[in-house]
Computed example of a mutant assay.
Amino acid sequence: MSLTFYDFKHAPSPRRIRILLALKNINHKAIEVDMMKAEQLTDAYKAINPECTIPTLKLEDGTTFTNVAAMNAYLEATYPEPSLMGTTALEKAEIAGWQSKIEQELGMAIPNALRNSNPAFKDRALPGPINYPQIPELAERGLTMLSNFMDKLDKHLDGRDYIAANQLSVADIAAVSFIDFTRVVGNKITEKHPHLLKWRTRLKEIDAFTL
C-alpha cells in the first residue's frame, strides 16, 4: 500500500513518525511542509488536513491520519515487526502508560515554554487553524514542568536500557524527539542526569534516531 507522509524536519511530532517509519523500514513518499513559511495554513494543505497540523499520513485510498496516536496504531497493526508498542497485555499497558505520561508532561511543557515566549509565535500560542494569544506565565510553567520531568525520567531510567517494557518502543521515540527539541528553549541533557544521558547515547547508535 502506498503511503504519503507530510513532514517538517525541524519539529518533534513529525520526527516521531519519521523514526517509526525508519525502524519498521516502511516504504513511503515524504512531502516537506515548511512551517516556517506557514505552508500548513495554506488552502492546499487544509484540503489534506483541516487541522493544519503536521504530521499527516495519507493512505492510497485517501484515508488520512492527522495525529501521532492514530499513526502509531495504524502502522504498528499494519507493520507489526519490529514491535514498538508491545505484544503482551502487560507490555502494551506499560508502554501506553509511559507514552501518555510523556505526551501530557513533556509534550505539553515544550510548546508552552516555546510558543508563549518566542515573538515568532505571537498570536500562535497553539497550533492549528485558530489564532490564540501568548500567555507569558505558561512559558514559565512550561520550563518548570520540563525540569521536573527530566528529573523524573532520569530517576526512572536508573538500571533500565529503555523507558518501558524492557524494549525499544514508541515511548522512547516520543521522549527522544521531545527532549532533543528542548534545545529551542535552552535545555540539554547534562551530567546532572546521568541515566538520561546514557539512554540518549545508546539511542544515537541506532540509525533511525539520527533522522
Rank of each mutant, 00 (worst) to 15 (best):
M1N: 09
S2F: 02
S2V: 10
S2L: 12
L3K: 01
T4R: 12
F5C: 08
F5Y: 14
K9I: 15
K9E: 14
R15F: 06
R15I: 04
I17N: 02
R18C: 10
R18N: 11
I19P: 01
L20H: 03
A22L: 11
K24C: 09
N25Y: 00
I26D: 06
N27P: 05
K29S: 14
I31G: 05
M35S: 03
M36Q: 14
A38V: 02
E39S: 03
T42G: 09
T42H: 05
A44W: 08
Y45G: 06
A47F: 09
A47C: 11
I48P: 13
N49D: 11
T53Q: 09
I54F: 00
T56G: 12
T56R: 05
K58M: 14
L59D: 07
E60L: 07
F65I: 06
A70H: 11
Y74I: 15
Y74V: 14
Y74A: 08
E76G: 10
E76K: 12
T78S: 09
T78C: 09
E81K: 08
P82V: 03
L84C: 12
M85L: 08
A89H: 08
K92S: 04
K92H: 05
E94H: 13
I95W: 11
I95R: 12
G97K: 03
G97H: 08
Q99F: 09
S100K: 14
I102L: 08
E105C: 02
L106C: 13
G107C: 13
M108F: 01
M108E: 13
A109F: 03
I110T: 02
N112I: 00
N112F: 10
N112D: 11
A113G: 04
A113N: 02
A113I: 00
A113L: 02
R115C: 08
N118R: 07
N118T: 11
A120H: 03
A120E: 08
D123Y: 11
P127F: 11
G128F: 02
P129N: 06
N131M: 13
P133M: 08
P133R: 14
Q134A: 15
P136F: 06
P136C: 04
L138C: 03
A139I: 01
G142I: 04
G142W: 03
L143F: 01
L143P: 03
T144I: 15
L146C: 07
F149C: 01
M150T: 07
K152L: 04
D154H: 06
H156R: 11
G159S: 04
A164Y: 08
A165M: 13
N166R: 07
N166S: 10
Q167A: 13
A171W: 00
D172A: 06
A174C: 06
A175C: 08
V176W: 00
S177P: 09
F178R: 04
D180G: 00
R183F: 07
N187C: 03
N187V: 11
N187G: 00
K188R: 13
T190S: 15
H193V: 12
P194Y: 05
H195F: 06
H195D: 02
L197T: 14
W199R: 07
W199Y: 12
R200D: 10
R200C: 02
T201P: 09
K204V: 02
I206W: 06
I206V: 15
D207H: 13
A208W: 11
T210K: 15
T210L: 12
L211E: 14
